[in-house]
Every structure is written in structure tokens, then in C-alpha cells.
């Protein structure tokens, strides 16, 4: 195989298609959004070309600050819950027999095929007073009467974790399968109980993978806008919900774009900080 760097312009040929796709479907829409975020809203029509910071200025209010804070909190909570559930689960799965692994992975993949709407309404039924899981608890005598569990933060969190968990497991799975099983055996011969060996060997050895997965789930959860509306109260609405609201129902594209750009910037900053902290931790 040829190893040297491309010499002529034509050597870049194979890159043309992916580059084109990237420009058409990512760079142009994103640039448009950035541009629109500086436009002026035209109440009669859509928006008019301008260069004003009004949209960003309006954003700097306590209300939007709170919403942003809640969005970040929710996404981080979802990411942490997913990691806490998925790492031990995927570890056990990777040590199970081939058959068990296939059954579980197929099950998880089928959850991926469910749309956010279906997940939202399924959980809203499960959390309802009339047909929900509390009826089961009443039936086995754990509760005296059924209650509605939604709308609530717990309901939003549960559904979002349910939605993100398959992704988490599928991202962690290859790394855990590749992890040398003799590492934990060695830890056990050195005096660590299975649980201790999990926390002193498996988790630290997979630190980078876990960190990357955490960031992935965090970003994934930031974009969720249906589940908070279906299962939460207005105070559980995320920035994504407000962006949708502004863009689609209030027809205020410039303001929606400004919020989206701001969300991207905050996300990038957070991810950058996490990576920086990770690198520092490694050097220490």
C-alpha cells in the first residue's frame, strides 16, 4: 500500500464525496444557523437579514439560565445513571456464554429501533395511575393504592436512561470483551474479592472508554426534547424543548438559532473541560 502523503490535487479525489456530504449536510446548515442567530425576527414573516446581538442578549436572563442549568443537570444525570448501570451490566454480559450475549444484544438492538415518541408514551402508560406499574405493586401487596408516577423528574430520567442505555452498552461492549480476563483473575489471586477486582482493575483499566461513553451519552441526552414534554412538568423542560418551541410554534428562528448555538458552545466547553481533567488525571 502507498504510504506517502497525497501529492497532486487529484490524489484527494476519494475524499470528494465524503467532504461534499459533510459540507452539504453539516457545514452549510450549521453556518446558516449561526448566521440566522444574528438576524432580526420579522413578526410579519420569518426573519430579516441583520447583524444584531439581541437574540443572545435576550437569552441572558435568569429564566433561560435556569433552563440551561436544568438541561445540563438532566443530561449529566442521565449519563451518570447510564454508566452506573451499563458498566457492571456489560462487564457481566461480556463474561457470559456466547448465547446469552447474543440474546441480550439482540434485545438491546431492538430497543434502539423504538422511536422517542413510542418510548415516551409507553413510559407514560407505565407510570400512569390507571394502568401503571403501581397497580402491580398493589396486587402483590406492597402498596395500598395505585398512584400516578408522572409527570415527574423521576419519570423523565427513567425514560431517558431507558432510551440511552442500549447505546451505552453497545459502545462499552467491544472494549469490555477485549479486556484480558486474566487481569481480574490475577487480581483475585492477589487477594481482591471479585467486587474489589472489578473496581480496582476493570474500571481503572477502562477509564478512557468510560469517559468517552459518558460524554457521548451526555450529548445524546442534551438533544432530547420529546420525553421531558411527555413525562415532565414545565419546570423539567430542557433547552431543546424551548428551542423546538421557539423554532416551530413561535416562528422565532433567530432566537431558536441563538439558543442552539449557545447550547453547542456550552457543550463543547464542558466536553473540553472533561477531557482536560482526564488528561491531568492521567499525568498525575
Amino acid at each position: 500500500m502507498r504510504r506517502e502523503a497525497p501529492q497532486k490535487l487529484s490524489d484527494y479525489g476519494p475524499l470528494l464525496f465524503p467532504a461534499g456530504m459533510l459540507i452539504v449536510f453539516f457545514v452549510i446548515p450549521f453556518a446558516t444557523m449561526i448566521a440566522v442567530s444574528f438576524f432580526k425576527r420579522d413578526p410579519a414573516g420569518f426573519y430579516s437579514t441583520a447583524f444584531v446581538f439581541d437574540n443572545y442578549a435576550r437569552f441572558l436572563s435568569l429564566f433561560f439560565g435556569k433552563v440551561l442549568g436544568f438541561s445540563l443537570f438532566l443530561a449529566i444525570a442521565v449519563a451518570i445513571c447510564c454508566i452506573l448501570l451499563a458498566v457492571p451490566f456489560t462487564y457481566l454480559l461480556s463474561r457470559a456464554s456466547r448465547r446469552t450475549q447474543v440474546v441480550w444484544l439482540v434485545g438491546l438492538l431492538s430497543v434502539l429501533s423504538l422511536s422517542e415518541v413510542i418510548i415516551g408514551f409507553a413510559w407514560s402508560t407505565l407510570f400512569s395511575r390507571t394502568a401503571g406499574i403501581t397497580n402491580l405493586l398493589v396486587a402483590i401487596g406492597l402498596m395500598s393504592q395505585p398512584v400516578a408516577l408522572n409527570p415527574s423528574l423521576g419519570a423523565v430520567l427513567t425514560a431517558m436512561v431507558y432510551q440511552a442505555l442500549p447505546y451505552t452498552v453497545l459502545v462499552l461492549y467491544p472494549a469490555l470483551v477485549r479486556l484480558d480476563p486474566t487481569l481480574t483473575e490475577a487480581a483475585r489471586t492477589l487477594g481482591a474479592s471479585p467486587i474489589k477486582s472489578f473496581f480496582t482493575v476493570v474500571v481503572p483499566a477502562l477509564r478512557n472508554t468510560i469517559m468517552a461513553t459518558l460524554i457521548m451519552v451526555f450529548i445524546f441526552a442534551l438533544g432530547s426534547y420529546l420525553l421531558p414534554q411527555i413525562l415532565g412538568r414545565p419546570q423539567h423542560w430542557t433547552l431543546s424543548v424551548l428551542i423546538t418551541d421557539q423554532a416551530i410554534y413561535q416562528s422565532n428562528m433567530p432566537f431558536a438559532a441563538a439558543m442552539a448555538v449557545f447550547l453547542v458552545l456550552v457543550t463543547l466547553a464542558l466536553v473540553g473541560l472533561t477531557l482536560l481533567a482526564g488528561r491531568k488525571g492521567e499525568a498525575a
Binding site: 484480558d180 490475577a186 487480581a187 483475585r188 489471586t189 492477589l190 487477594g191 474479592s193 474489589k196 481503572p204
Partner: peptide, 21 residues
């Protein structure tokens, strides 16, 4: 008796040194 209570030392063929330490 479980492995971690046997007070033994074992060297594996793959050595199994902990890569993160």
C-alpha cells in the same frame, strides 16, 4: 475457599500486569 482468601501468588502465562498501574 475462594481464590482471594488462599494467600497465594500466581504468575500467568500472559503475565496479566495491570496496564493502568
Amino acid at each position: 475457599v475462594p481464590t482471594h482468601k488462599r494467600d497465594l501468588g500466581m504468575v500467568f502465562q500472559s503475565l496479566a500486569l495491570f496496564p493502568h498501574l
